[in-house]
Structures are given as C-alpha cells and as structure tokens.
Design a binder for these strands. Structure first.
Lengths: 239, 239
DNA sequence: TCTTGACAATTGGTTATACCAGTTTATTAA
DNA sequence: TTAATAAACTGGTATAACCAATTGTCAAGA
C-alpha cells in the first residue's frame, strides 16, 4: 500500500490495532517507545499516528497518550474495507449485507444505465467481455474485468454515490472474485450472463437489463452461499 | 475538525486543493516553503501532507515534489463528503444521485427493519419522535433527530454496508436537513410521516413500512426540488 | 546552432536533539 | 493515612543537519 518508513510503520500499527494486539480503548506505547521498537525516529512514528488518527483508528490525548478508538462503531466504509483487507475474513452478516447491498444498488443501476448508455460505452463493455473471453483461465484478469464491467455500468447509470461506494470496495474486490472465478465452470457461465446483460443494455431495455443484472448477481450469490454452506460465522477470504 | 498546528495546516491545504488554489496535477510548494508560509516547522507540514496523501488528495514524488491527485476520479465516498463539506455546494447530478441512492437503500431497509425490529428499538424510535415533537422550532435538534431516526432504522435492517454508508454522510447531513426543516410547515408534516412509518414498523408490516419510508423520502425530495427549481447546476448548501 | 555533460541547487526522506506544558506517578512530609 | 510536592513521562513543536535522487543551469564540444 504505502511505501517508505512511515508507511510501513503505519501498516504495521494498523494491523496490530485491527488484530487487537492493541485492543479498543487501550493505550498505545508512547511515541518514544514505538520509535525504538521500529528503530526509527519519533517523526516517522508521528506521521503514522497522524494518519491513523485521521482514519479514526486512534485518538491522541496530549500529555497522556494515544488510545485506540472504537473504529467499528464510528468508522466509515473505508474503515470496514481496511479491516477486511487486514483480517482477510468476513463475518456472515457483513457478507450478506454486502451481497444484498450490491443487489439493490446494481439492479437499479442496470435499469438506469439502459436508458443512458451511449455507443462508446457499449463498445467499452463489449471490449471488456472480449478480454474476459480470451482470459478464461487467468483469474487475476477475470477479476479485473469483473470489477471494470460492474464499475462501468454503475458509472453509466449516472449515480455518483453508488459509483463511489463501489469504488471504495476495490481494495478487497478481488478477495471475492478470485475465489468466485476459481470455481469450475464459473468463468464461462459468468461470461454468458454478462453477454446477456450487455445485449439488454445495448437495446436500451431497462426491464431486461434489470433482470439480467439480477441473474448475474444471483449466480454469484448462489456460488458463494454454496461454498460457505455449513461454514462458521466467519468466512476466510484467503485465496 | 482536527485541532493542533498540523491539523490547521491540513485543513488549510485541503481547502486550497478543493478550491483549486492548487489545481489537479499541479505541484504543491515545497515542504520548506509551506513551513515558511504557515510559520511552522517542516514536520507539522509533513504530518499534514501525510494525511492528505492517505486521503487520496496528493501523492508525493521523492526528490521532485508533491502533486495534487485527481481525487474525484480515484477518491472514495469520504472524499466526496470532505469536498462537499468544504465547498458547501453540490452539483445537481450529485444531489440527484444522493436522493436516489437514499431512496433505493432506505426503502429496502425499512421493509427489512419491519421484520426485525424489537420492542426496545421501537421504544428508541418512539422516544426519538417525542424529542422531535418537543423541539419543532429547534432546527439543530430536528436535524439531529432526523439523522438518528434514519440511522437507527438502517441499523435495525441489519445491513452493515448501508449503515456505514449512511454514517459516512454524517458530516454534511445537517447541510440538507437544516435547510429542509427551516421551510414553513415542514417539521410538523415530517413528524406526521415519521409517526406513520414508526407505526408500520412496530406492526412488523414490511410493505407498509416500505411505502411509509417512500412517502417520507418523497416528501423531502419534493421540498428540495421545489426550492432549487430553476436554480443553476450548482446548489449552495449555506445555511 | 544544437547537443551533451557536468555541476549546483532543490526536493522529499530521515534522524537527532531539545524544549514546553501539562499529566501521571512516586516520594516525601505532615 | 493523607496531603503536598517533586520527579518522570507524555504528546506538541522547532531547529539543524545529512542523504539520495531529480531538476535546472550553463558552459564546452560537435
């Protein structure tokens, strides 16, 4: 993510906070102690702490110390993404929320996009699927195509908020798609559904686009739920 | 927002970036120049820049300089909120996106919340409306109640993502509600709609809850569109 | 005139040291 | 045991300095 010394300290400390090495409410070691631990100057540590504070992970109390905040309660969407990125695991409720959220926003976006799509945009999506078709074995490429495909459609729909929210998930998007596309037969089946969706969009058919997006997402949801069936309350996202 | 010297420098620089004093792609003054400008040490400036970089507003190139990023294109939802907070203005498309987004997510949330709401939660919402009723002239109090009311319902719905997204808007929520509740007759009418919504929720009637939420949001949208009718493409949010 | 090469200035990255003003803790005196 | 006091520690801030790499300048050479 971030490079440089303060960046590494930042990542390390954030990981420690998320992994509850420093539990919520606890006091972090003093800046001087941390600078010793990381064999760095106090300023490298201070930069890291400043970013953590901005991100809502800690709050500093002058002349007292730096304390871990309840970032789950007060955090933003970015916070959740960062937590998932470090944990590489997601609890069932959050996963369901995520799939449900996508369903709601993206079916609406597809219907709206059908009314607004231009030829250039249609062409872009077509190229995206061509690329997907020629990389059916390359999971990383498929993941990238998938993100771009959905991101583009939401962009065409014109809803800035939905687009930014979707964009916020980019850092962890591949956690899901890498898993998804590694299931036998999925790349082909997914491509077929995407093609159908693109056709509906190109024909400016809002209702059909909504249905096609619904089918696309439902297919993904089905595969995910099949895979985690009987699993615990926490689903690992490790590839 | 943030206090302390680096915090003030951060706010100032962020404002300059958003106001395009430093346009996208341009190079910021060197750290040494900035520290002179703010009559502060280089490290206060460095802390501010580190936070700006983390927020996606700038990127630093060692031995070259710090450059303004295209934060609209690559930013997250938080970025948009920060931009709106500084600009105190919103363009029509983003406003429509926002209202549309709320409509989609919150009507669904209301329906879901009807199926899950407990007596305690029902009680909390009831108290919220009592407070609203007894503060019909206090716009700040009404705004706070409004946020809590909707936030609570989304929370009851169980969708973590929707809740976090809604929470992300907290810093600018009052920009809209302060304006909304200052319209004659609105506090009373709004309260009536809220009461109806709460009744539907308490009766675990999902369909009625969805309709009631729809009515509540539509009322707000109507008032907003009436007010900005004929306005330019940018709507001021100044109270 | 145009290119090239060398050198100086500038930039962000990093460290060390120091002082301040409060807080916390330990110590001491009552 | 308690209260007053002093010492130690904390984050906030500033100054000075060095490094490595880039950029800009400008003179020498083609």
């Amino acid at each position: 993510m971030k490079t440089g010394l303060p960046g590494r300290i930042l990542n390390d400390m954030r990981t420690d906070i998320i992994r509850e090495v420093y539990p919520i409410g606890s006091r972090l070691p003093s800046e001087r102690e941390l600078s010793q631990k990381y064999d760095a100057s106090r300023f490298a540590v201070r930069e890291a702490i400043a970013v953590l504070a901005q991100g809502g992970f800690v709050e500093t109390h002058p002349q007292s110390g730096t304390y871990v905040r309840d970032f789950f309660k007060f955090g933003s969407l970015d916070t959740l993404v960062q937590v998932l990125r470090v944990r590489r695991a997601i609890d069932r409720q959050t996963l369901e929320s995520l799939l449900n959220f996508r369903h709601i926003t993206e079916t609406t976006a597809a219907a709206e996009a059908a009314l607004r799509i231009t030829e250039d945009e249609s062409e872009h999506l077509s190229e995206n699927l061509e690329r997907k078709k020629s990389h059916l074995g390359d999971i990383a490429a498929l993941s990238e195509c998938d993100f771009d495909f959905h991101h583009t459609i939401i962009g065409i729909s014109g809803n800035t908020i939905s687009r930014l929210v979707f964009q916020s998930f980019k850092p962890i998007y591949s956690f899901f798609t890498d898993f998804f596309y590694s299931i036998k037969g999925v790349p082909e089946a997914s491509l077929k559904l995407n093609v159908k969706l693109l056709a509906a969009l190109t024909h400016h058919d809002a209702a059909a686009s909504r249905r096609a997006m619904e089918d696309t997402l439902k297919f993904g949801e089905k595969k995910v739920y099949e895979a985690i069936k009987g699993g615990g309350s926490v689903i690992l996202l490790d590839r």
